[in-house]
């Protein structure tokens, strides 16, 4: 091992990366648990529509099903890429 290796910043431990990834995916799966089966499909189709206007990745789309007193609310959030104004609709 050369002296340069000592000077380089230590990479993030993989366990920390694992924990963060699990935190997100577990939360997402819990929120859609027991939700309608069409949800993943709907998410994909929504992505196609949104992509016509803004460049976003599927990771930017979050679907939640909230249940409160008798009714269900489908919550959709799209994290828009920052700094960029929305593209003009493709025709």
């Amino acid at each position: 091992m050369g002296i340069l290796d000592f000077l380089k910043r230590k990479p993030e431990p993989t366990a920390t990366v694992a924990k963060e990834r699990l935190r997100i995916i577990v939360a997402q799966e819990r929120s859609t648990r027991g939700a309608p089966d069409y949800l993943p499909m709907m998410r994909n189709e929504l992505l196609e529509v949104i992509k016509k206007y803004v460049h976003v990745d599927i990771e930017a789309i979050n679907i939640n099903v909230e249940r409160d007193s008798g009714h269900e609310v489908l919550e959709l959030s799209v994290a828009l890429p920052d700094g960029k104004p929305a593209a003009t609709p493709a025709t």
């Binding site: 431990p13 993989t14 366990a15 920390t16 694992a18 924990k19 699990l22 935190r23 577990v26």
Partner: peptide
């Protein structure tokens, strides 16, 4: 391996679940 940072710890697993 947990001490080395390449395995999830007891606390990590408890927190996630």
């Amino acid at each position: 391996r947990v001490a080395n940072g390449d395995m999830l710890s007891v606390k990590d697993v408890e927190e996630i679940l």
